[in-house]
């Protein structure tokens, strides 16, 4: 059964990928890219990677598609025919693919439990993380504690992306003098949409908080929560008008939030150093090692969530405000 699902999904993925290469309408290509990542999220679920699937669905299908559409809105939506026959490209690709296939010949078979990958480092995570760190979700333990430093870097990466997009596109606050009621970006004619959005928004934010604080026990965590929170703000901005959103979440506030998230993460690490541990060693933060780990993971996940939310929203602002500025 699992094999059947796998094969179906992989076939769909191949069809989508080929369609992307052929299609000329960029709008369709962007939508297909969204479908591609949704399909791969399904595949991740069938391969037990629920956290990854969650992230891929939220990021690849959600935010990346939104950003691409926003960028399309700022430019052309049709691709020109390439003027040359890309034979060289085909050759490069075939060679690379052949080398890779050659390399996978020696890999252990898919799903093989005796592969070395499952026997060296991973067993400790599975067998001892609950005693050493606590959360039943091993992914959270590794992400926030064993490899917490990677996650700090990842938080800075998304922070950097936010900074870069703002530096490149700039956000101009046009609220000076203009009243909210004249905002043309609000979807005035779509009453149903506006009502439903207002109805759903509290639940979206609530769900984001659930994902944020339930990450220890199930799939989820700061990153996914931040993305969901940001998508709530994006819906708000789409239907109720940018100016209103900008009033609720001003740019300066979001910049401070993004910064605060990174500093919260780094600060947790520094606090551990002050209390005599290594950087990001949460064990020294609490009365017992487990309590310390719990507190540390809570804080760093919060930092991740806040930074991701603020950076994603800033990026969206930068794209959506560009057109009229």
């Amino acid at each position: 059964m699992e094999l059947f699902i796998d094969i179906t999904l992989l076939t769909f993925l191949c069809i989508t990928a080929l369609a992307i290469t052929v299609i000329r309408k960029l709008f369709c290509a962007v939508m297909l890219a969204g479908i591609f990542s949704l399909l791969s999220a399904c595949l991740f679920v069938s391969m037990d990677a629920v956290d990854v699937a969650f992230t891929e669905a939220a990021v690849g299908t959600g935010i990346a598609t939104v950003l691409m559409l926003a960028a399309l809105n700022l430019s052309h939506s049709r691709e020109k025919c390439p003027p040359y026959q890309p034979l060289l490209a085909l050759l490069v690709v075939c060679t690379t693919g052949a080398v890779l296939v050659y390399g996978t010949m020696d890999l252990p078979a898919f799903g093989d439990a005796t592969a070395p990958i499952h026997h060296h480092v991973a067993p400790r995570y599975i067998e001892q993380s609950q005693q050493e760190i606590g959360p039943p979700n091993f992914v959270t333990s590794i992400l926030a504690s064993y490899r917490g430093y990677d996650t700090l870097a990842e938080t800075v990466v998304i922070f950097t992306a936010g900074l870069s997009v703002v530096a490149l596109l700039g956000i101009r606050d046009r609220r000076g003098g203009q009243s909210i009621t004249t905002d043309r970006s609000a979807m005035k004619g779509y009453l149903v949409l506006r009502v439903v959005t207002k109805l759903l928004l509290p639940f979206i934010f609530l769900f984001a908080l659930y994902v944020q604080f339930h990450g220890d026990y199930g799939p989820g965590g700061g990153f996914q929560a931040g993305v969901i929170f940001a998508s709530g703000v994006i819906i708000h901005s789409l239907t109720l008008g940018r100016d209103r959103t900008l009033k609720a979440f001003p740019q300066r506030f979001l910049t401070i939030l993004a910064t605060a998230g990174v500093l919260l993460y780094g600060g947790t690490g520094l606090a551990a150093m002050v209390r005599g541990g290594n950087f990001l060693d949460y064990s020294v933060l609490g009365a017992t090692a487990l309590a310390g780990q719990h507190l540390g993971i809570f804080l760093v996940e919060l930092g991740v969530g806040v930074t991701v939310f603020a950076s994603m929203t800033l990026m969206y602002y930068a794209f959506s405000y560009r057109k009229e500025a």
Partner: peptide
């Protein structure tokens, strides 16, 4: 049940 009719409508 709330969102899909809304999106269809929109």
């Amino acid at each position: 049940l709330i969102t899909s009719p809304t999106s269809t409508h929109a």
